[in-house]
Computed example of a mutant assay.
Amino acid sequence: MKKISGSILLLCFGLINTHAKAEVLQVSEHGFIVENTIQTDKKPEVVWAKLVKDIDKWWPKDHSWWGDMGKLSIQAYAGGCFCEVSDDKSAEHMRISFVNPNKTLRMTGGLGPLQGMGMYGALNWVLSEQEQKTQVTLTYRVTGINPEGFEKLAPIVDRVQSIQLNELKKYLEKRP
């Protein structure tokens, strides 16, 4: 058995720590709940501003309708839209249903292919201060009817949510 040096272990631990903690919390015959979390040294006000105002800069374009051709935006008020526009094409990804600035943003609807499948969910972005860090918890509660069940779908959605949250973290922590 090879001995691993302490610096390699620290490097590996550091790499693991940079990614969202992802978890499928529940799967039932009518839906699922997935949750992802990250931590950043940025203040909640900074995280909020980047989350809401800069979504087009950090949201992965391969998880949008029109890729680099689309422009994403969030109207951070109840009834507002998490939308994408590309020329004369447009999509409402989700509807904004609750806003408590610097703390909670709730969106409702079905993201991506879930929309076309008739799935509906509540996507909660919760920012909380923890020991001079901000924790961002992204929880998606999805309900609907899926003839194949949700056992295979829930982990896929969880992975995509993890990708999205990790992109926010990378954007928050990139050097100016």
Results as ranks from 00 to 15, higher is better:
residue 1 M to G: 14
residue 1 M to W: 13
residue 5 S to N: 14
residue 6 G to Y: 02
residue 7 S to P: 01
residue 12 C to P: 00
residue 13 F to L: 15
residue 13 F to N: 14
residue 14 G to A: 12
residue 16 I to C: 09
residue 16 I to Q: 13
residue 16 I to N: 10
residue 17 N to A: 07
residue 17 N to D: 08
residue 20 A to V: 07
residue 23 E to G: 04
residue 27 V to R: 05
residue 28 S to Q: 10
residue 29 E to R: 06
residue 36 N to C: 14
residue 38 I to K: 03
residue 39 Q to Y: 02
residue 43 K to M: 12
residue 44 P to A: 02
residue 53 K to C: 01
residue 54 D to T: 05
residue 59 W to F: 15
residue 61 K to T: 06
residue 64 S to L: 05
residue 65 W to D: 06
residue 68 D to M: 03
residue 68 D to E: 15
residue 73 S to A: 06
residue 73 S to L: 07
residue 74 I to M: 12
residue 74 I to V: 11
residue 76 A to E: 08
residue 76 A to P: 10
residue 80 G to E: 04
residue 82 F to E: 12
residue 82 F to R: 08
residue 84 E to W: 13
residue 85 V to Q: 13
residue 86 S to A: 13
residue 89 K to M: 13
residue 90 S to H: 06
residue 99 V to L: 13
residue 101 P to A: 03
residue 104 T to I: 14
residue 104 T to N: 01
residue 105 L to E: 00
residue 108 T to S: 14
residue 109 G to M: 08
residue 110 G to F: 01
residue 110 G to N: 03
residue 111 L to G: 13
residue 111 L to E: 11
residue 111 L to D: 06
residue 117 M to S: 14
residue 118 G to F: 00
residue 119 M to G: 14
residue 119 M to R: 02
residue 121 G to S: 12
residue 121 G to I: 03
residue 123 L to G: 09
residue 125 W to I: 02
residue 126 V to K: 07
residue 127 L to C: 05
residue 127 L to Y: 02
residue 132 Q to C: 10
residue 132 Q to M: 12
residue 134 T to L: 09
residue 136 V to L: 15
residue 143 T to L: 14
residue 144 G to V: 05
residue 145 I to C: 14
residue 146 N to R: 05
residue 151 E to T: 07
residue 155 P to L: 00
residue 156 I to N: 09
residue 156 I to G: 14
residue 164 Q to Y: 02
residue 171 Y to M: 00
residue 173 E to N: 12
residue 175 R to W: 06
